[in-house]
Design a protein around this nucleic acid. Structure first.
Lengths: 335, 335
DNA sequence: CTGTTAGCGCCTTCAT
DNA sequence: ATGAAGGCGCTAACAG
């Protein structure tokens, strides 16, 4: 395909070491030689073989991004932030999707033991409870940053949003809109974000001396159809909710569809609020209130922290938890 | 970090070649040895160094995905399809975003000359007219597949949707809803998809003996604010359109906002149709009609074609253009 | 069936 | 300021 260092050196009648040093702008090479080398490299469009140099240097200028799904605006925007920072620092980004499947996460984690990447950004699966695979990764010493769906038991950098607070505020929003019986929809009970958002929900209710009825808490971790049915059952039960807090965007879509199907007008008959990071928010139904996370900033931040750890600057980063603020957009308030 | 082949071999009192062959399930190794090797490899959680093996084999089991933006449901869904196929074939996916910036595309293309990847999937920038950087890539012989925003001058595999047809149907939709003066919004005049969608638009009008007024064709390639202003100017002009065809999702959002701002109710005062691949379509304003591309299938298809080329199966793939069908969802029809 | 050997292309001491 | 040489970890040709 391309030309290699040896050929380039031959062309210039120099040794490979001289050429290598010239290209790395070493101070022990004369200006003229550097110039000559650079011109020829450009002319022959020489590109160093990244695998040879990774092998030699034992680092790859590559990071892995491991996320549960991409069809989700939070992750999409986060990738945008991550890629921006990576490109600026000339790092490459390998993307891995787990599709919420713990087995895939385990397989990927195992693979990443190989040294393919210099650092890892990960948001765990909703199924992730046993974390041995992540502990193994951490133990090899490879820089690791959790974001959004973090793993609390592992003592490394974490970037999240203020999930407790958001859960609290979303619930207050519904209460202030007059809801008495609020349903809480989540994809997992064990996920860090689920627990925090739920705690916020619960405490907002407690303040009003409202008990959280177990029947109003739905964990929808099945297929789209199963979730749909679960929510439908809830809304058709003897004592249905008058408000829904969807702790993830996907469940808001499903809830919305179910409400339509049952002719439950939003917000007249039932209120709906959701975590959501839609780029197309203006096109949204005006009846949907949302909690929006600063996804792009989270992406940027976690990439920055990762590079700090990789390059051994700002060691304090490697253990710290950073919390960014989400914002609530009220759209179904009875104005 | 991990253990290497030599250490593993030493542990087993075997040569590195035997161990290597055993791990690759070579037929010239006894069953017992293979078993013993595999167990020890598992026990010591040996992971082969991918860079050493890429260097040796001159292939990386890695592909590059180059797209203009990710904050766009078409690309998001396409990535999903691509990643699914890649994971199944044990390929790794490097992601590069050009942010619609030709300079970035050129830099990435140049870098990919290095042999870092075994194949490339690319959807070009809206600015991409000079294609020398892509021609260079193609000339090195690296498998290259264009999708959606293709580069017609390069004789390699291309996967698209039926853009002419979609443009035609979208326009028919507006005409049938009674529009007489339809505005066409695009991000570029030179992009393959723009030209085809526009041709469909134009021909649908011609059939009705309607001339395309230059003033109704808007190329919005600026910032969000500039585009907003351009569209606003159009809608406030002496002779405003009574229908808008947004040839990309982003411009639909902007148009929608402008219409709201000017109190132009959709669909009563003005009709709007757009290309859009929203996963959250049900949450959309019911006044927005859309043309939806089979993004996930395009992703799958282009990854499959790329792997066919890489693995030298189905050589006919390497020149063919595959066209998938989009679908129109009419939502603002005067029912 | 297993071992020895020679690179893949690059970087980096060490020497000059 | 430049060159020679060795080795990163792995695979594959060549021996046996």
């Amino acid at each position: 395909m391309g030309i290699n260092l040896k050929q380039l050196a031959a062309e210039l009648k120099l040794s490979t070491s001289t050429v290598s040093r010239a290209l790395h702008d070493s101070h022990e090479i004369s200006i003229e030689t550097k110039q000559r080398v650079r011109e020829m490299a450009e002319k022959l469009s020489y590109q160093p073989n990244p695998y040879a140099s990774s092998l030699r240097k034992q680092k790859s200028k590559t990071i892995a991004l491991v996320i549960p799904e991409i069809d989700n605006n939070f992750f999409t925007l986060a990738i945008n932030g991550i890629e921006e920072v990576a490109q600026k620092k000339s790092y490459h980004v390998l993307i891995y999707l787990t599709h919420e499947d713990l087995k895939k996460e385990v397989a990927i984690a195992k693979h990443l033991l190989s040294g393919r990447v210099d650092g890892i950004l990960i948001s765990v699966t909703s199924q992730t409870e046993d974390i041995e695979h992540l502990k193994n990764l951490y133990d090899t010493g490879i820089p690791l940053v959790f974001f959004d769906r973090i793993c609390e038991q592992i003592d490394t950098a974490k970037i999240t949003t203020d999930d407790y607070d958001s859960g609290y505020k979303a619930t207050r929003h519904l209460l202030e809109a007059g809801c008495k019986r609020i349903a809480y929809l989540q994809v997992s009970e064990t996920l860090s974000i689920s627990k925090k958002r739920f705690a916020g929900f619960q405490n907002a209710l407690l303040e009003q001396h409202i008990k959280t009825e177990p029947g109003l808490i739905l964990t929808c971790s099945g297929t789209e159809e199963e979730n749909h049915q679960q929510i439908k059952n809830l809304l058709q039960s003897a004592n249905p909710p008058d408000g829904i807090f969807a702790s993830v965007e996907k469940l808001a879509v499903t809830s919305y569809l179910v409400c339509n199907e049952l002719n439950l007008n939003i917000p007249e008959k039932i209120k709906l609020i959701s975590f959501s990071n839609l780029a197309t928010a203006p096109l949204l139904s005006p009846s949907l209130s949302t909690i929006t996370q600063p996804a792009f900033d989270i992406g940027k931040k976690c990439a920055e922290v990762l590079f700090n750890i990789i390059e051994r600057r700002a060691m304090e980063d490697s253990k710290a938890t950073t919390v960014l603020k989400s914002s609530l957009i009220a759209r179904n308030s009875t104005k």
